[in-house]
Design a protein around this nucleic acid. Structure first.
Lengths: 122, 122
DNA sequence: CCGGATCCTTGTCGATACTG
DNA sequence: CAGTATCGACAAGGATCCGG
């Protein structure tokens, strides 16, 4: 998904909106990052890393770059870098909330039999 | 995701519903299969394979098994096998429709600048 | 033909160690 | 603290083969 050359240049499998959304967000981590930013509104690198799902640092860095290049997230302080410079959702990112809400609702209803300890978070 | 030993036995990263939904559906192909079954209500192996996204046959077979083991899809004729035995959504699978609708809406609005040929399908 | 299984190559993931 | 480097494991993709 994210060899440097592909940053900001996704490969579209088709013109279907659903497939195109999955071209960008169809992996195990991107929407977890968005979820964290819906819950907390602002998050640093190490706060992402401490989420219970346990993303590893290289994957986290690559996903943050990816989502930033797509204007789904942004650095709160665009210049002066790194150290304690947290991320937040853009408008485009905030608009993903209904997607995550519907997914969360579906999971709570339909996964509780096979995943007994599932609980509401968002 | 789908070594034989893991069929029907997903690994849950956390108790968060969103993360759990992504544990099952967070890849590039599973929701494409669900989308096809929302559009067409019934589909054979080769019909899936002919969708514009171009899934390869080994990935398709593995995802169909995976989704079937999770009772998201099912064979229309449970016994008498294979040959032209199409798949359909279960209730659990049909309940994913709002998730796909929200994703499709988001993509149409927010991806059209970077993906000019995006069009509505579902 | 259709529904896969198999083989092989390439790419991506993920753990851990390390650096500015 | 915010990443990058490295390396092994595994998944994706393409091509081809096979049984009914």
């Amino acid at each position: 998904m994210n060899t440097d050359s592909e940053l900001q240049n996704p490969e579209w499998r088709s013109s279907c909106p659903i497939a195109s959304g999955l071209d960008i967000l169809g992996d195990k981590w991107s929407l977890i990052i968005v979820r964290d930013l819906i819950e907390h509104s602002s998050r640093t690198y190490s706060e992402f890393a401490s989420s219970p799902e346990g993303i590893s640092t290289n994957i986290l860095a690559s996903r943050l770059k990816w989502l930033e290049s797509l204007s789904i997230i942004e650095r709160i302080n665009p210049d002066k870098p790194s150290r304690n410079n947290a991320f937040q959702l853009t408008q485009r990112g905030k608009a993903l909330r209904p997607v995550l809400e519907e997914l969360g609702k579906w999971s709570q209803i339909h996964l509780k039999e096979i995943h007994p300890t599932i609980v509401k978070i968002i």
